Simulated assay, not measured.
Amino acid sequence: MKILFLDQSGKPGGAELCLIDIAKPYRDRALVGLFADGSFKTLLQQNHIPVEVFTHQPIQVRKQSNLLQALGSLGQLAPLVAKVVQRAIEYDLIYANTQKALVVGAIASLLARRPLVYHLHDILSPEHFSKTNLRVAVNLANRFASLVIANSQASEAAFVQAGGRAELTTVIYNGFEPKLYQTCALDTSKLRQNLGIEDKFVVGHFSRLSPWKGQHILIEALAKCPPQVTALLVGDALFGEQEYVKQLHQQIAQLGLENRVKFLGFRADIPQLMAACDLVTHTSTAPEPFGRVIVEAMLCGKPVVAAKAGGATELVEHGINGFLTTPGEPEELANIINSCLEDIHNTATIANNAKAIASERFNVVNINRQIAQVLSSKLIVY
């Protein structure tokens, strides 16, 4: 099966990292078409996956765009659609990995007469998308997609609640290569020393700096923990969220936590940094479609505290392979952090459980096998 993968981003986010793993088995008979240039193209090339940037003109539609803004983008889509159609004729299947890719892929599917798969990495809800974008995504998927792969039951349920056809959907979780999360104890020790945290209880937070990602909740919880508890914030502000970063620094100063919070910015050494932590927190205030960082921490053998909403509740069983806390409740989060600090034996047991379960449940080999099966069994001939 020859597959044309489509993705809107030039930067590697969670959906893009997932696409790399999905495309690898097909790399001798596939092409990834991007709607923007950037570091994601480089990552694909490093993994020997054929890639082509179809346009260098940004598509001026965002998740909260209204109808007029969406209509205004149609003119710039025409050359892009034409290029995708030209390419799609050479392949058996169009695989749209993002919402903008769905829009272009749906039109190309009609014109090139190729079946379309939509990989849903989002919770399609008013909290994240405008009404216009919700209607567009659901209607296009209903009309043109032969299959909608949802990355969690939460994503699937939101799609159906928004009007999506349930019979189109199947749930397949994101896949991971466990070997990538194996680290050296000596290197971890050196990293902790370089960061000045060798004698601290380190709580890591791995996400872009954004209000709904909830870094402010961790900071407030930190103020309710003993002085040896230190937080590492790994990630940058994107999409004009620099004002939130200023607010975080103001909050830290007001609470007197300047020596207990470290901003590390964007880092490529995520497994190593996770290994340097004693605990990893996930504090999103709105439901996550999946929660990639949760599984990554598990694979690193670290206990995870996750916000009890969305896909996270499908990944974490409280007290068995991690902890769940009410979103937006810093005191509850602080209590769990303190209990992990006090009961190291139980915390280690939970971390070991998490690593064993995640290594099997989310192994990329098993996940890719599931994807191959549904592509073969559920797709219809256009």
Score class of each variant (00 low, 15 high):
Ile252Glu: 15
Val295Glu: 05
Ala358Leu: 12
Glu52Pro: 00
Gln193Asp: 14
Phe159Ile: 02
Ser284Ile: 08
Ala36Asn: 07
Leu19Val: 06
Gly311Asn: 03
Lys378Ile: 06
Gln370Thr: 06
Leu255Tyr: 03
Trp212Val: 12
Arg361Phe: 07
Thr183Pro: 02
Thr230Glu: 13
Gly164Phe: 04
Cys340His: 11
Leu375Ile: 11
Glu331Pro: 04
Ile320Gln: 02
Gln228Cys: 03
Lys83Gln: 14
Ile337Glu: 02
Ala221Met: 02
His205Glu: 15
Val261Glu: 07
Ala112Trp: 12
Ile320Lys: 05
Pro25Glu: 09
Asn366Gly: 13
Arg113Trp: 11
Leu375Thr: 09
Phe266Lys: 01
Gln161Pro: 07
Pro227Asn: 14
Glu167Ala: 12
Val85Ala: 04
Val293Asp: 10
Ser155Arg: 04
Gly75Pro: 04
Ser359Gly: 08
Ala82Gln: 02
Leu315Ile: 00
Leu77Asn: 08
Leu209Pro: 08
Leu102His: 02
Thr188Ala: 01
Gln45Lys: 12
Leu218Ser: 00
Gly175Tyr: 02
Arg87Thr: 14
Arg208Asp: 13
Gln60Trp: 11
Leu147Glu: 07
Ser152Trp: 11
Ala23Cys: 11
Leu257Gln: 12
Ser39Val: 06
Phe323Ala: 03
Pro330Met: 06
Pro289Phe: 11
Gly301Met: 01
Ala137Gln: 13
